[in-house]
Write a protein that binds this DNA or RNA. Structure first.
Length: 637
RNA sequence: GCCGGCUUAGCUCAAUGGCAGAGCAACUGACUUGUAAUCAGUAGGUUGUAGGUUCAAGUCCUAUAGCCGGCUCCA
């Protein structure tokens, strides 16, 4: 007797071994039809899996992540199968499901063009309709290698060779196509009701630039045609939020061909930027930071001492002054260290928090540039905290809380990663271990979930990274907290302890926004250009209905300016509908429509970007409403 | 940096190898207008740049720059 416990706690009993698919059928035909995979004792498996012992079972459908991934994984095999049918000489690499679809990497000796993509997609649709059932089989290692060698699939051979000893080596066959694969797969390709190839991109074999670049085909698949349409519409909508497009349309910033990676901020962008910076200063003053400003260009000597020359030279710009070698700073830390070093410090002063809105330049490779998100010159909202070792945990915790409180103001969701020692780094293993453990301790104390990003730390220390999402779901590192035992050593920093002896301080390097540029890029996409009133470059636009109201409008404009509200008037000889449309398109939070009635009553008619016509109110009521929104930083998303 | 694609007026986009165009924006004029686009007119271009093929190149070829999507890398 086999006892199978379902999700709802119900227990089914069977006399003989049975497939998960059959169990689904016994529960109901609806579930059977919708079923894509099975979660057996917590593991996602094929529906074809034979259950021969007591276990828990959950039938996974489209709404389950495991169900979606399984369907898309099979879709990637359909893609590979189609490619093999059309171009038998193409070599197969890997093809997993990813967040919104799947990809498969191929080694083809010809470029896969959009036209070829269309042909492949047609073939895929055929395969889907053929209703192929993936069949799983297992081979011992040597036979598996032999099998893939015979099929002339060198990448598969390499994959098998690198599988750990004792690992089961499984294959899936659907129709004439067989692929090395851990699974799981859906029971029939005809469950894929909508499939679409999206793009081709280069991708290094096994993600290393030392290896050959393969061609990666991205696609997505759904169980319903309408879901695919919805998804494509969603992607279209997301593209409208692209900060590069909105930056141009709303005249916030631009990047010109003359300065790739060097953004220009236009007047409206500078309003947003200046507000962010003054808010930053206000908060940091409260949190016990003082502010410094260090030079952009400093003698090359300093960068040898800091270790940047050895570990960061590739990313730096250099110049000469009076026959001496100088470097443009890629980081603010050495400057801050010189400030620290210029005075004696007592343990009583620690932790010493030196903030700096520092403009840094980094030579990023051209392919990495991306709007404001990845540039070659950016301002870090940096701070260097010098402290005693005993203060590490509290300080890191403090910075975590500071970052969290900042992101909450903007309504951001974030995730946290812990980046550990990279290959190219300096310092002893012991220092690195201590530093990494200190960060873990702080993360645990803060109760934060985090994922480990192996080998992605700074060359001088491990770091906690805060990632924010852009409009199409890519995440960007913004805030970071880096713990550093190396720089204090290199620069021979010290403080006088309670015992009157010299001691070595520890440093934290940290940013909240990350870079003002990147943060603004995220902000623009997050709000789709419709900034909350406190950040909006123009908060109120006054729209007289006819030129009879122009004088009244100008008077109100002055009075609003006196209240510290950013206002402008549209006195052009245009219809009111036209003026409103334009203000709306420019995402200005409030419009004041002024005609004969308002002039007569000395009132204002208010139109909100978000809620439309709010009707007439007194000038004072309007000012109070807007001021409250600004002062409380009220955000409607 | 690598792979693929793209680049035409300020913006969005047209133009079989055969006279470079439209809409919006700008400017001028008329309309004095009530909650998302009034009408008419004017101006705007060495088709990213440099070569080449051709009687003829926006269109084909080569190189190059920038951009877009990825890979790699990172705030």
């Amino acid at each position: 007797m086999i006892k199978i416990t379902l999700k709802d706690g119900k227990i089914l009993e069977f006399n003989d071994p049975i497939t998960a698919e059959e169990v689904a059928k016994s529960i109901g035909m609806g579930l059977y039809k919708a079923a894509l995979a099975a979660k057996i004792d917590g593991q996602v498996k094929d529906l074809m899996t034979v259950i021969d012992r007591d276990c828990s079972l959950e039938i996974l459908i489209w709404d389950d992540e495991g169900g979606r991934d399984t369907l898309r994984h099979t879709a990637s095999h359909v893609l590979a199968q189609a490619v093999k049918r059309l171009y038998p000489n193409v070599k197969l690499a890997i093809g997993p499901a990813i967040e919104n679809g799947f990809y498969y990497d191929f080694d083809a000796d010809f470029p896969i063009t959009p036209e070829i993509l269309e042909k492949i997609e047609k073939e895929m649709e055929k395969i889907v309709k053929e209703g192929l059932r993936p069949e799983r089989f297992v081979l011992p290692r040597e036979e598996a290698i032999k099998y893939m060698k015979e099929k002339n699939e060198p990448y598969k051979v390499e994959l098998i060779e690198d599988l750990p000893e004792g690992e089961e080596i499984s294959f899936y066959t659907q129709g004439e196509f067989t692929d090395l694969c851990a699974g799981p797969h859906i029971p029939n390709t005809d469950k894929i009701k909508a499939i679409k190839l999206l793009s081709v991109a280069g991708a290094y074999w096994r993600g290393s630039e030392k290896n050959k670049m393969l061609q990666r085909i991205y696609g997505t698949a759904f169980t319903k045609k309408s879901d695919l349409e919805n998804y494509l519409n969603m992607v279209e909508e997301a593209k409208k939020r692209d900060h590069r497009k909105l930056g141009r349309e709303l005249e916030l910033f631009a990047i010109h061909e003359e300065g790739p990676g060097f953004p220009f901020f236009y007047p409206k962008g500078m309003v947003v930027r200046n507000i962010l910076e003054s808010y930053w200063r206000e908060v940091h003053a409260k949190w016990g930071y003082s502010e410094i400003k260090t030079p952009i260009i400093l003698n090359e000597r300093l960068w040898h001492q800091s270790g940047h020359w050895d570990h960061y030279k590739e990313n730096m710009y250099f110049t000469q002054i009076d026959d001496q070698d100088y470097a443009v700073k890629p980081m603010n830390c050495p400057g801050a260290i010189l400030v620290y070093k210029s005075q004696m410090h007592s343990y009583r002063e620690l932790p010493l928090r030196l903030g700096e809105l520092g403009l840094v330049h980094r030579h990023e490779i051209s392919g990495a540039l991306h709007g404001l998100m990845r540039v070659r010159a950016f301002t870090q909202d940096d701070a260097h905290i010098f402290m005693m070792p005993s203060q590490i945990k509290d300080e890191v915790l403090g910075v975590i809380n500071l970052i969290d409180s900042f992101y909450k103001v903007f309504g951001f969701e974030y995730h946290v990663e812990l980046s550990t020692r990279p290959e190219d780094s300096m310092g002893s293993d012991e220092d690195w271990e201590n530093a990494t453990n200190a960060l873990i301790e702080a993360l645990n104390a803060a109760g934060l979930e985090y994922k480990i990003n192996e080998g992605d730390g700074a060359f001088y220390g491990p770091k906690i990274d805060f990632h924010l999402r852009d409009s199409i779901g890519r995440t960007w590192q913004c805030g970071t907290i880096q713990l550093d035992f190396q720089m204090p050593e290199r620069f021979d920093l010290h403080y006088t302890g309670e015992d009157g002896e010299k001691h070595r301080p520890v440093m934290i390097h940290r940013v909240v926004f990350g870079s003002i540029e990147r943060f603004m890029g995220i902000l623009i996409e997050h709000y789709a250009g419709a900034f909350p009133t406190w950040l909006a470059p123009v908060q109120v636009r006054i729209l007289p209905v006819t030129d009879r109201a122009n004088e009244y409008a100008k008077g109100l404009e002055e009075r609003l300016k006196e209240k510290g509200i950013r206002v402008e008037s549209d006195l052009r000889n245009e219809k009111i509908g036209y003026k409103i449309r334009e203000a709306q398109v420019q995402k200005i939070p409030y419009m004041l429509v002024l005609g004969d009635r308002e002039v007569e009553a000395g009132s204002v008619s208010v139109r909100s970007r978000r809620e439309g016509d709010l009707g007439q109110m007194s000038f004072d009521d309007f000012v109070n409403k807007v001021r409250e929104e600004i002062d409380k930083k009220i955000t409607y998303v």
